[in-house]
Design a binder for these strands. Structure first.
Lengths: 186, 186
DNA sequence: TAGCACATGTAATATGTTACATGATTGA
DNA sequence: TCAATCATGTAACATATTACATGTGCTA
């Protein structure tokens, strides 16, 4: 059901064709928020139009149809924004792996955590570039599209980095405890 | 495909029946990592058993079957833990809302951010209780099940709280800029 | 004029949800 | 003994992915 509002939200920012919306999902959106293929997007746009939440405002070459959000569409989007996200509906592969980390041998856990640390650093470098490019615009225009999400992303990756560092010390502690237990056995 | 590994991971921690696994998904797991209904769990357990990754170790009353992970199961789980999570496959309703926050009027945005702040605080209180209950055990046994995830959760909610506070100042800035523009118009 | 990006559609398959369905054990 | 919880299963429906399918316009 969220795809509907993802599309509505993108069209609330600016009018676009199915093709353009597909490209938007291939950008930063899909890495952090939501993704969908064109085979899902086109049928959903038809439904949204049938429900009067969006409308075709322009027909271009190659059969291109540009959609814009309608007033009922804005009302529907706003309503959804204020509904409590279904906290029983999470599917986060990364957090699942965190939960399952203790099923690994300490040496494997250390390897994996080191890889996470690297991912966090890479992502932070990427975020730095985004801020460099969009930063000036964001300073002039507060509350611009993407800024809230980018700032949240930057802070989240910093948190991931710090957490991974903490987790590595935890694995070391386990190694030390195991070694002590082994020594005591002899 | 992740459900398979979620089940495998839970069974790597300890043997359990489909019913018990369903209950585990109804706990903290579903709020932060993964969720599934019994109607999905039972067929998947059958498939995992058919593939030899788990096996029935005990048959109890009321037709209860307790499954345990097998050695091939552990190998498969470990392999999956080391695959790179598909970064093009995110579906995070919360982050989607962050992306769409700028589609709201500043006053609506302020209302929503205040609600997020409250959610973060509530969650942090909940986490504090979890740490109180499990903390002593976690201190004695480093790398225990749930500790990594809980610590990550705690840090993430602190990040959310700080981000929401920052975002509120951003909305204020927008309000100020809008008021100035209006004044200049007259 | 050929190759690439633009642009949309749909069928088959896989995954996930809701609803329907049944029965056993336990404790009050 | 009766209600709640334990315990599993499956059918119908909704959602999402992969693969197949077709044609247009631009630019080098």
């Amino acid at each position: 059901m969220s795809l509907r509002y993802a599309l509505l939200g993108l069209l609330a920012d600016e009018a676009a064709s199915g093709y353009v919306l597909t490209k938007k999902f291939e950008g930063s959106l899909q890495h952090y928020a939501w993704h969908a293929k064109h085979s899902q997007i086109y049928p959903e746009l038809s439904k949204l139009a049938a429900d009067g939440l969006i409308e075709v405002t322009e027909e271009g070459p190659r059969g291109r149809r540009t959609y814009a959000i309608t007033e009922p569409g804005r009302v529907s989007l706003r309503e959804w924004m204020f509904t409590r996200p279904d906290s029983g509906g999470v599917r986060n592969e990364f957090v699942l792996r965190l939960f399952l980390l203790p099923t690994l041998e300490p040496s494997d856990a250390r390897t994996l955590l080191t890889a996470y640390l690297q991912v966090a650093n890479e992502q932070l470098e990427g975020m730095a570039k985004i801020f460099e490019l969009a930063g000036p615009e964001w300073k002039e225009e507060p509350m611009s599209f993407g800024h809230f999400a980018a700032e949240y992303g930057r802070r989240s990756f910093e948190t991931l980095r710090e957490w991974a560092q903490w987790a590595l010390t935890e694995v070391e502690a386990r190694d030390t405890a195991d070694a002590a237990a082994e020594a005591a056995e002899r």
